[in-house]
Simulated scan of single mutants.
Amino acid sequence: MFGRNKSNAPQNRIDSLIGVGTRLDGNLTFSGGLRVDGEVHGDISSDEAQPATLVISEQARVEGRISVSHAVINGTVVGPIVATDSLELLPSARVSGDVEYHQIEIQLGAVVEGRLVHQAGTRALELKLAASS
C-alpha cells in the first residue's frame, strides 16, 4: 500500500494508531487513516462522507464488524468486512467472516473463511445510467 503508486488508491495518511499491547473494548469510528497494531474488540467504521483508510498490521487482531471505504488487512479479523471502495488482503491476513467489496486484491497466503461478495459501486451505476441515456 505505502510503496506502490496507485492512481485510484485513497490517501495513504495515517492519523491515528492503536499500538502494540493496546486493547480497545468498544466500537470505534474514525476519519482519515487508522492503523491498528494492537487489539480491537468491537466494530470499526469510518465517516461515510470522507474516504478513509484502515490498516490492520500483521500482529493486530480485530473482533467485530469493519465498515470502511479502503482497508489493508495483514492481521486477524474475526467478523464481517465491508469495503465500499477497495480491500487489500496481504499474505498474513486471516479473515473469519463474510467480505463485501467493490475492488479486491488478495495476495498469496491470505485466508478468508467466509463469503466474498462483490458490490457494484455507485460510481459504476452512475456511469451505466449516463451511458444508457
Rank of each mutant, 00 (worst) to 15 (best):
E113T: 12
R61D: 08
G33E: 09
I106N: 01
R65M: 11
Q59K: 10
V82K: 04
T29D: 11
S45N: 11
T84A: 02
N12Y: 03
N5W: 02
T22H: 01
N12T: 13
L28R: 04
A52T: 05
L127S: 13
G32K: 01
G3N: 14
G19D: 11
A124R: 07
V117E: 12
E63P: 00
G32D: 11
I14K: 05
A130R: 13
N12W: 00
Q107P: 00
S69P: 02
G3R: 04
Q119T: 15
E58F: 00
S86T: 12
V55W: 04
S132Q: 12
S92H: 13
T84Y: 04
I56M: 02
T22P: 00
L108V: 08
T29E: 15
E63D: 12
E39N: 02
V99T: 14
P51V: 10
E39D: 10
T22Q: 02
V95T: 10
V68H: 07
S69W: 06
V20R: 07
I14S: 06
G42Q: 07
I104T: 10
I73C: 09
L17I: 15
H102A: 14
L125H: 05
S132W: 01
G42S: 06
I66T: 11
E105H: 01
L24P: 00
E126F: 10
F30A: 09
V77I: 15
S133D: 12
L28Y: 05
V112M: 01
S67E: 14
P80Q: 09
V117H: 01
A93R: 01
S45H: 05
